[in-house]
Design a protein around this nucleic acid. Structure first.
Length: 315
RNA sequence: CGCGGGGUAGAGCAGUUUGGUAGCUCGUCGGGCUCAUAACCCGGAGGUCGAGGGUUCAAGUCCCUCCCCCGCAA
């Protein structure tokens, strides 16, 4: 007999975990996900990736605005033996946590107790961590504060962005989740309290966090670009509007130029901006209303004056 | 019906207001030049101007319909 599970999750990251449960033969009695919301251009209402998958599998979907308020009865009726959450986006009350007798297992995309919160991967990249990973844990009343079960680490390379890591970790998390449930069933799953002293909590990302500050060093700028990809995307202010910045690399600077100065802007050397301790080449950019492209390509069709501060440049 | 920008050579853009032989930068191919360069010079190839319809002697350009891409806001 396999466990009767209720799954709670919303974005792309959660889908592999749900899929792994289904494919491992668990009885997924129902799925909770965030309500459909207007999204994207045209304000069309869209449903979450988890809902897409659940519907395709013929699993019952529940979308309470606040599960702790109007989802309790539905959850109780589903009578799960265990609940699983993965990037659900809602906080569970004690009443909700008390429903499944075996508790609620959360798949969290960090090596806890570091990077609690909703954007663990992005913060790991932003702060220059050498590695990240996934941790399964027993959910309690706090945000990502419950006891840790299993974990799996993953190096952060120069080529990684928050997006690429999230993708890898979603599959890593799915495997780890199934192993966690198996061991919980057998009763030999390790369980460890989180060290409060080592814990960090990171806030959700905002668009403003994408703003590049060239008075920081080159490395900090490079990290921000990778951390904000694919959302909210790093950007620099222009004379008019914002220049989204998708890919960058370190470049030689000019000590006498103020941070933010356009050092080069041609299709041979590319677009290079001065930082506090060097320079940074904006390799792939996206101008307002334009599609994303290599900066060198952009410069073939647009002139850009050098020597000025980027935030004074008009396109 | 949320607001807005755009689809022109392999890439990035101009040209559309005022209809009249399709242009620029780069790449590419061939040739030349230099000790050398983000080189430079000469020459060539490469476009059903997103699709369809309409107006006109003539449409990239004006009118209608449709498709696709993107920015903002959520």
């Amino acid at each position: 007999m396999s466990l009767r599970v209720v799954f709670m999750g919303t974005p792309e990251f959660a889908v592999p975990s749900l899929q792994a449960l289904v494919e491992a033969g668990y009885e997924v009695a129902g799925v909770f996900t965030q309500p459909d919301r207007p999204k994207g251009r045209g304000g069309k209402v869209q449903q979450s990736p988890v809902k897409d998958y659940a519907l395709a599998q013929g699993i019952a979907v529940y979308q309470p605005n606040r599960i702790r308020l109007d989802g309790v009865e539905d959850l109780r009726r589903l009578a799960p033996e265990i609940c699983v959450t993965a990037a659900f986006g809602q906080i569970l009350s004690q009443e909700v946590l008390d429903i499944p007798p075996m508790g609620t297992v959360n798949v969290h995309a960090s090596l806890l107790p570091r990077h609690r919160g909703a954007a663990p991967v992005q913060w790991a990249v932003l702060q220059g961590d050498g590695e990240t990973g996934v941790t399964t844990m027993l959910t309690d009343r706090g945000i990502d504060t419950g006891d840790m079960l299993l974990r799996c680490a993953c190096p952060i390379t120069e080529a990684d962005t928050a997006g690429t890591l999230l993708h890898k970790l979603s599959y890593m998390g799915a495997e780890l989740l199934v192993e966690t449930l198996r061991r919980l069933e057998k009763g030999d799953c390790p369980r460890e309290k989180q060290s409060e002293a080592l814990s960090t909590y990171d806030p959700m990302l905002t668009k403003e966090m994408g703003l590049l500050d060239f008075t920081e060093g080159t490395q900090a700028c490079l990290r921000r670009v990778r951390a904000m990809d694919p959302w909210p995307c790093a950007y620099a202010e222009l004379g008019e509007g914002a220049l989204k910045i998708w890919k960058t690399k370190a470049a030689e600077g000019n000590p006498s130029a103020a941070p933010g100065t356009v050092l080069w802007a041609n299709d041979k050397q590319g677009l290079v901006i001065a930082t506090a301790d060097g320079g940074i080449e904006l390799v792939e950019i996206q101008a307002p209303n334009a599609k994303r492209m290599e900066a060198k390509a952009f410069l073939r069709g647009h002139g850009m004056e050098t020597g000025k501060l980027l935030h004074e440049v008009k396109l």
